Simulated scan of single mutants.
Amino acid sequence: MAQSTYAENYLLAVAGEGFAAGFYEGLGYELIDNRVRTKCGEIDVIVRDPDGTIVFVEVKSRRGRGFGAAEAVTAKKLRTMRRCAAEWLAEKPYSAVRFDVAEVLVAGEQMQIRVFEDVDDGAC
C-alpha cells in the first residue's frame, strides 16, 4: 500500500508540475526546463518571464487543502530553492531572477492553480 501511495503522489506531482508549466506558457513565459536535479535538490519548473526574468517555480500539488499547499514552502525550502537556483545559474549569463510558488489543487480530472509571485522577497 505504501508503494502505491508513493506512486500516486509522484504522478500527482508530475501532473501538477506539467499543469503549472502550461499555465506559465499560457501567460507568455518560455519554458526553460522542469524537474531539474542539482546537487542541492530539485527545481520543479524554470521559466523565462517575457521581461527576461528567470523564474524558479516550486509547485505544490494537493488533492485538497487539508495538508496545506503553498504554506508548505518554509524558509528552509526557500533557502534550498536559492541554493539550487545559484547552482543552475552558475555557468549562465546574468539575469534577474524570481521565486514563485504554484499551488495546484486537483479534484478528479480538474486542476486549479494559484500562483504566489516573488515569495523570496524579504525572506530570511
Rank of each mutant, 00 (worst) to 15 (best):
Q3G: 10
T5K: 15
A7N: 13
E8L: 14
N9W: 08
L11R: 14
L12A: 15
L12K: 12
V14T: 15
G16A: 11
G18L: 07
A20S: 15
A20P: 02
A21L: 03
G22P: 01
Y24L: 06
L27S: 05
L27T: 03
E30D: 14
E30H: 08
E30S: 13
T38H: 14
K39E: 13
K39M: 04
G41N: 07
V45C: 02
I46T: 01
V47Q: 00
D51Y: 09
I54P: 00
V57R: 00
K60W: 02
R63L: 14
G64T: 13
R65P: 07
A70F: 14
V73E: 00
V73L: 00
K76L: 11
K77N: 08
K77G: 05
K77H: 13
L78Y: 04
L78V: 10
R79F: 05
R79Q: 15
T80S: 14
M81P: 00
M81L: 15
A85P: 03
A85G: 10
E87M: 04
E87S: 08
W88M: 04
W88F: 13
A90N: 06
A90Y: 05
E91C: 07
P93E: 13
V97F: 05
V97E: 06
R98H: 07
D100A: 03
V101D: 01
A102R: 01
V104C: 01
V104Q: 00
G108A: 10
Q112A: 11
I113C: 02
V115Y: 00
E117R: 12
D121H: 12
G122K: 04
